[in-house]
Design a binder for these strands. Structure first.
Lengths: 255, 255
DNA sequence: CGCCGGAAGTTGGCTGGCCAACTCGGCCGG
DNA sequence: CCGGCCGAGTTGGCCAGCCAACTTCCGGCG
């Protein structure tokens, strides 16, 4: 599945990366084994060394291999859970795990954006936003409460969706709204009354919170969301390295 | 500081990246403005287009810019908190925020590794590990309890360190132990008795947990750590995009 | 037996070039 | 006035080559 997506991506280096990823996770090079040299791979796949290096950069970013100058690459993790090199929606993620995602719209209101929302969505003062509150389920059991703020252009489309539609991002894509980049912030928060009711937990009990701002390929913000997960249902997994990383840790001074 | 580190890194594309990062965060291209074309930048810096593209790949991974085929790159986030493109130790991270990091060793024991630890550190059955429990402070206030498991080679060095040494990674580096790659998993956990005592919170109160396995450049595991943060003190921040990402979300099935 | 030097192998980095795919704006025709 | 076509500009992708830095191993030498 993920492999097919990689292959379907078209570009050569993604195909090479997909093939190598499969070879690694199937243990072809051993638990902590060495990869063939870049040159050897280049010849094997009939591509240039530069293309192989692009492919290997993907695998390195996923934490599958290390690399240092002077010696062959080493396999780091052959048993990674699932290496989405993708920005995945809740729906897509759930499906790729073999679970059945669900979503029930609890409320949808339209109101003027407050200062924080204008800041996040880069809106003019006075602009109205659409705010949704949804309960998300995994194979029937509630796992997450999702509060999303949409700018007008997107919100108008969301408002027209049926209340029982599972995926919001898919119909949005049909209307030309693409999700390209996202910034995530993860912390802990206490359940409020709504959270407690929807997730069947006590008020004040801890929830894993993910704040997310997503932009389209032009850099325009398309959603700002606060997802609150029931502990024990999900965990977030990140890889980083000296070479390059997408993780940063910061003190909380804003909210 | 971060800039100097980037510049000191030597390679051309890192210098270009550092310069562009500064230009972006100082607002030279406007809030959601366009970057100059790759060719223009190449000429400006006197490097090839490929080098510029390497530099821009770093910025894209940090979530500073987008890119699509056909049009100039767009500035995404000019106001990022701190974009360590680095695998940062607690000590380094704290210092770069202007806070004074502290650490007090609560206990250090040596005992046979259990199954999970052997798995994580890739050790033979019967191997002994060193386990430390440390309270970490930020400018005097406790923020985190750190439980770290070291393999023998590393643990022997850690055991010889004075109890009041703030940074463990720095003296380890002097002895040739390098931290290169890390896998992080973030979730929520309830404080146990030790956590509660050290962090001055109630038993069962929620803590943000980061499980981390770090390897050296050869791919050999050098530590496996469980850090438990007091809520409200830190948050984790991640960027990802369709192009490439280091984030994955998975259901909890192991612990 | 141990240490050191050198050679071979490998990745990091950089160049220059080429073409395809895509965006965007302007021009022209209806 | 609107819509579609076209071309310039721009990024994605791929190739071939070159050198530097580094690791590893082996053999010679003390």
């Amino acid at each position: 599945m993920a492999l097919d997506q990689d292959r379907a991506a078209g570009s050569l280096y993604r195909k090479v990366a997909a093939d190598l990823r499969e070879a690694i996770t199937s243990g072809s090079f051993g638990e902590a084994g060495r990869l063939p040299a870049e040159g050897a791979l280049a010849e094997q796949y009939g591509v240039s060394r530069g293309t192989v290096r692009q492919a290997l950069a993907l695998l390195r970013a996923d934490g599958l291999v290390t690399s240092r100058r002077g010696t062959r690459r080493v396999v780091l993790g052959s048993a990674r859970v699932q290496s989405f090199s993708e920005l995945l929606s809740f729906t897509h993620w759930a499906r790729s795990m073999g679970e059945e995602p669900g979503g029930r719209l609890e409320s949808l209101v339209r109101r003027p954006a407050d200062a924080a929302e204008r800041e996040q969505l880069r809106l003019e003062p006075g602009t109205e936003v659409y705010v949704t509150l949804r309960l998300r389920t995994l194979s029937g059991t509630p796992v997450m409460v999702e509060r999303t703020v949409y700018p007008p252009r997107v919100g108008e489309l969301v408002a027209r969706l049926p209340a029982d539609v599972v995926s919001h991002t898919e119909p949005l894509r049909e209307h030309g709204i693409l999700f390209s980049d996202a910034d995530h912030t993860i912390d802990v928060v206490a359940a409020n009354a709504d959270d407690a009711r929807l997730l069947s937990c006590r008020r004040g009990s801890p929830l894993l919170r993910e704040k997310r701002r997503t932009t389209d390929p032009t850099g325009t913000p398309v959603e700002w969301s606060q997802d609150r997960y029931l502990p024990g249902t999900v965990a977030f997994s990140i890889h980083n390295s000296l070479a390059s990383s997408a993780l940063s840790r910061h003190a909380r001074d804003e909210d």
